[in-house]
Design a protein around this nucleic acid. Structure first.
Lengths: 316, 316
DNA sequence: TCGGCCGCTGTAAACGGTTACATGACGCAT
DNA sequence: ATGCGTCATGTAACCGTTTACAGCGGCCGA
């Protein structure tokens, strides 16, 4: 009845609808789902719910979901595999599909816990026979290094993301590849640990300003850590970009409002979510997409400054 | 069976569980909900999903929800009443309760569209017979003005939030009350329009630095706008706090990592969500709580600086 | 005016669990 | 050894909606 099908005259349908409205009746979603075998809901599983990055992913999904009249069930903070398993097992009869982003955990392990017949799209991960959207992290990171090298930098520090995080290791790989391509040696001393949080970026920043042979540029594996590092630099009286160039990754919305505006790699975050949902809904085929990030040159890398240390040179 | 009740021997229960696990069986959530008249899900309705503030609210709720094994259905971007109504009507049989934050719209109007029998907790709004959590926005704003006055400021600009937004108007009320208490006249020229976005803060900041009789302090109605304004000030070569004091509101996580670290009013954002869920689950009584914000003095207000313009004086 | 066909309406089963209730088996006491 | 009480197991109804299907009524043509 309420899906407007069957041999019911239009007038009758309208009349029923009117009365239903008057009585303030609304169909019972669970009963409907049980009968139609379709909830109009999709699940979104993220490693975290906090921060500009994930909220942007959710927003991208939500915008599209709203167009299609879909509800979003979100869940985050899956520190361990057990918590993740519990979530995955609760989805049967609750959602029509799942968008999963789990850079820390092995994708195929997770998918094993999933009830059969639940369509899944992986974000920033891949698995056989599953659709996925990935970001060319390595390419983006390499572009950053090439840009910094072109500006004359030779000692470029890197603030790493969490170990075991897929995005983080890909970005580090891109960083190292960029150095290699420029004929520079990767120096372990220039790689500072971090965990994608502002706090960890701040700590890394403090260590960097105290280095005896201080680098001339710092590349943080994400914007949150760049913000933390920037805070540490300011505290130490080290000026960005005059004394030290700084580049981030993600281009979260506030990146352009930092002082100085942050040079970063624009990851189409909302698109990541939006495309993910699109792929989920178009279940006809499994296929994978890779989104290309773009280097966004603002002021924190000092691109407008003249740098006399070494002559600028372009890498390809 | 699967809720572990009834006269079933423990051993039998365990054996069934084991087999279920082996067969990778999971109960059908919709069927279960229909039968038990309880989904283990709660709905979270926010005006927006984007940004540090809302993502922090969601996180607060999620953390608590996870403890209780509850799922979260979120939805945002309810630009108009119709969209909101559609969402509210879809909840029957889908969630056990609702946490609603809708500072732009009239609470009682919204609640009229809600199916009967759905418990609701209002965030930053009140309505008869409904539980709610509110924030003492006016008190927090007033404390900011008092602090700035104590630092010697007499011309304090205010960057407003969106018109019709409850939080925004309460904060402005607190600002005006603070001025009045200090014996200062509220000057309409010192109130710049804004919309809680970084962009609008940036625009407001640009206008402020161009003012003929420039204020000595700027109080933004939220941190996002303070960040935008800070960006505009830096761009114009106006130094914070030396040339201009700046204070925000909310204490979003990155506030302390700005340069200079932002003086702001700490709103227990995650608590707002957490307490909201707690109230929802404890449906025995309807009652309302008001969370008190705290002034967090960092460096953007220049509290450490000596200011000779006028002598500092304390307001009570 | 009557019959046949088409189309609307009412009825019942099914979706997949939960739970109350009846039934059957076992142990203990007399 | 038998009866009664207790506890585990099996059975069936129910949750609220959809949908297939049967049946009936109306319309139109002859």
């Amino acid at each position: 009845m309420f899906n407007h099908k069957g041999p019911v005259r239009e007038a009758t349908y309208q009349r029923v609808l009117a009365v239903a409205g008057r009585m303030r009746y609304t169909p019972h979603a669970a009963a409907r789902s049980l009968s139609t075998r379709s909830t109009s809901a999709i699940g979104v599983v993220l490693p975290e719910l906090h921060g500009e990055f994930f909220s942007e992913v959710i927003r991208g999904i939500d915008l599209f979901a709203r167009e299609r009249g879909l509800h979003l069930i979100v869940s985050g903070s899956h520190s361990d595999g057990a918590a993740m398993k519990a979530v995955l097992q609760a989805v049967r009869g609750r959602v029509d599909g799942l968008i999963v982003m789990s850079p820390d955990l092995d994708a195929s392990t997770l998918l094993h816990d999933l009830p059969r017949g639940v369509p899944v799209v992986l974000l920033n991960a891949t698995a056989d026979g599953r659709s996925s959207i990935t970001i060319d992290n390595a390419g983006g990171a390499r572009a950053v290094v090439e840009h910094l090298v072109a500006l004359g930098h030779r000692r470029i520090a890197f603030i790493c993301g969490p170990a075991n995080n897929g995005d983080a290791s890909q970005r580090r790989r891109g960083y190292r590849a960029g150095l290699r391509a420029a004929g520079l040696d990767a120096d372990a001393a220039l790689e500072a640990p971090g965990s994608f949080t502002e706090e960890s970026g701040y700590e890394a920043g403090k260590r960097i300003v105290e280095m005896s042979n201080r680098p001339t540029a710092v590349f943080a594996a994400n914007d949150a850590m760049a913000i933390g590092a920037l805070s540490a630099f300011n505290e130490a009286g080290v000026h960005v970009p005059a004394d030290l160039a700084l580049v981030g990754f993600d281009d979260i919305p506030i990146a352009r409002f930092l002082s100085p505006p942050l040079t970063t790699v624009k990851v189409p975050i909302a698109d990541l979510g939006r495309r993910g949902l699109a792929l989920l809904l178009d279940s006809s085929k499994v296929h994978s997409e890779t989104l290309k990030p773009n280097l966004i040159v603002r002021q924190s890398c000092g691109a407008g400054l003249t740098r006399t240390r070494t002559k600028p040179q372009e890498e390809t």
